[in-house]
Structure formats: structure tokens, C-alpha cells
Design a protein around this nucleic acid. Structure first.
Lengths: 148, 148
DNA sequence: TGGGACCATATGGGCGTCAATGGGAAGAGG
DNA sequence: CCTCTTCCCATTGACGCCCATATGGTCCCA
């Protein structure tokens, strides 16, 4: 079924407080509950300056990929460096907020606000303007000729 | 299963004090406890300028790898030189710190700070900047095939 | 149909606990 | 006898856990 509560959809922008916390949009939180996700696995996106956030299954998916090659190969070493060394587990506080660490700030350029972007089976953290730009660029590339 | 306390994940950078000690991140320490690891086996990574740290099982795994290739190959010879000749056992002190020896400094270029990098079944010690660079390079190289 | 009670989300901040760090003193080894 | 290491305790700063407030929207009822 294609209900609304079991997928991460749409986007929202929230403010970061003085303690570097930001509320995860309520809609996303209910998806997390729906999916029984408590531990959040966070990883740098491979293409965009964004942090991907999902359940442990997100990590599983990458690990299966690693397992498919020789574990001692430089290839596997490189993947593990990103997936294991670059990935972080986080949890939300009682109010459904997460910490915006330097790890997240440095990679995304996030300053005072975070744009949450649904990606179906996970969601992402973006610097608001970067998200606008990337979306505009994606639109541009897909529908090549369109006057603004 | 992909619990959080039974694998080494994510990364953290800690300072080395005047006595050349550095705190192992609390998260990593609990994984060590979880796995019943007391003696730490350390050796040089085959690819990167990093020291790999794990339990005695880490040594086992490398020995099996050596055994799986032609024992007279330059490859096996080289691996044995590193694994058997280059490996070191260490222990943590009561506060969960380890000594940063010259063996570690020389191979990694570590100066005043250490970046601890989770690698699932073991973790690594990196010079902070070297880790940043290696990760950026790995991301650049990306995967040959990507998850759907 | 307009007003108001009610509710959920987002946001702000206090406070206790624990990890990270620094340094002193006792013990082992050369 | 001197140095290097190990054990122990003190400090501090970050993070988790808790409760308080604001803001916007919805529903109910007059």
C-alpha cells in the first residue's frame, strides 16, 4: 500500500537552537515510529552535500555491497572507510530533536537552519539554499528547455 | 543484526596529553567490553597510513587471509612481514586511554591529535587531516556499482 | 459563521551525569 | 639513582533528560 505514514516525503525547514538541536518534522517522526526505527544511521550522500538519515537497514544495504567483494581488497577498504568510518548513529531526544554536530555542519554547510528532505526510505539534511539550488539544477537538467 | 553497541562505527578526534596518552572514545570502549576484548592487537593498515586496532581475532583473520594465498608469493611474504613482524599488543589504562608510541606516530604521522575511525569489527588510528583527505578521495572514487 | 477552547508542533532553557583531559604520586625497570 | 610507566584523583565541559513556553492550526459550539 502507498499510505502516507510509511514513506519520507516532501520537505521542511527548521531552525537550529543555541544548543545545536533541531526538531525533526513531525511527519518524518511518525514514519520512523511506523517503521520501528529508533537508532538513526547517518551518512554523507555520495553525490550531494547532504547527510542521509535512515534506520540500521540503510547500513545493512551498504554492508551487503561491501560483502560482495574481497574483504581485503583496497576496494572494500575504501567502502568501509566511508560506510563505517563516515557513518554515525544518533538518536532523537524526548521531543524528537537531533544534534547538529560539526560532522554534519562541515559536510553540508548548514548554519542556522536545516532543510529536511524526504527520500522515500530515508530522509536527508540540507543547507536550505543548497537544496533550492540542487533542486533547480535537477529540474533544469531533466526538462532541458524551459524559460524561467 | 545491526545493533549499535556491538560494532565500531563513526569517528571521533581526541587530544594527546603530555604523557602521550589519548582517550579511546567511550562508544568504542563499550564495544570492546561487549566483545570481551582486553588485549588490543595493533598493526599497520595495508592501504592507508593508519593503525588498525582490534582483539586477538583480528590477528586470526589476517593469518587466515595469508594462508589463503600462495605462501611463497611476494604477497604472502609481505603480509606476514606486516602482520607478524609489525603487530603489537597493547592495553588500556583504568580511564580507557592508550599510549601513542613512536611506532604509531611514525607510521601515521600523528602529532597532537588522533582520529579514531570505526571499521565495524575493528577501529583505526589516523592523523586527523590524513583521514579527511582519504575519505574525500574515497568518496571521489565512489563505488563501481551503487545501491539502488 | 465567527469566536474561542483545545491540541500538536516547534522552540527555549535548567540541571545532573559522564566522558575527556590534566596532573600528582607511587611503583617497576634499567 | 634516575626515568619511565601505572594507578589514582580533580576539573571541566559536553551531552542527555527533563520541564516550560510559544505559535499556529483545528474543531466545536453558540
Amino acid at each position: 500500500m502507498s499510505g502516507v505514514t510509511n514513506r519520507f516525503l516532501s520537505n521542511a525547514t527548521n531552525r537550529i537552537d543555541a544548543k545545536s538541536r533541531v526538531s525533526v518534522p513531525a511527519g518524518f517522526r511518525s514514519v520512523l515510529v511506523e517503521r520501528g526505527i529508533q537508532e538513526l544511521y547517518c551518512l554523507q550522500d555520495f553525490v550531494y552535500p547532504a547527510i542521509s538519515v535512515g534506520g540500521p537497514d540503510l547500513l545493512d544495504r551498504y554492508e551487503r555491497q561491501i560483502a560482495s567483494v574481497d574483504p581485503f581488497s583496497p576496494e572494500a577498504n575504501r567502502m568501509s572507510l566511508l560506510v563505517h568510518g563516515g557513518g554515525v548513529f544518533m538518536r532523537l531526544d524526548a521531543e524528537g530533536r537531533l544534534m547538529v554536530t560539526d560532522f554534519i555542519r562541515d559536510f553540508t554547510g548548514i548554519g542556522t537552519e536545516v532543510t529536511f528532505v524526504g527520500r522515500s526510505d530515508h530522509f536527508q539534511l540540507w543547507q536550505p539554499q543548497a537544496f533550492q539550488d540542487a533542486q533547480a539544477a535537477a529540474r533544469e537538467a531533466r526538462f532541458s528547455s524551459r524559460p524561467a
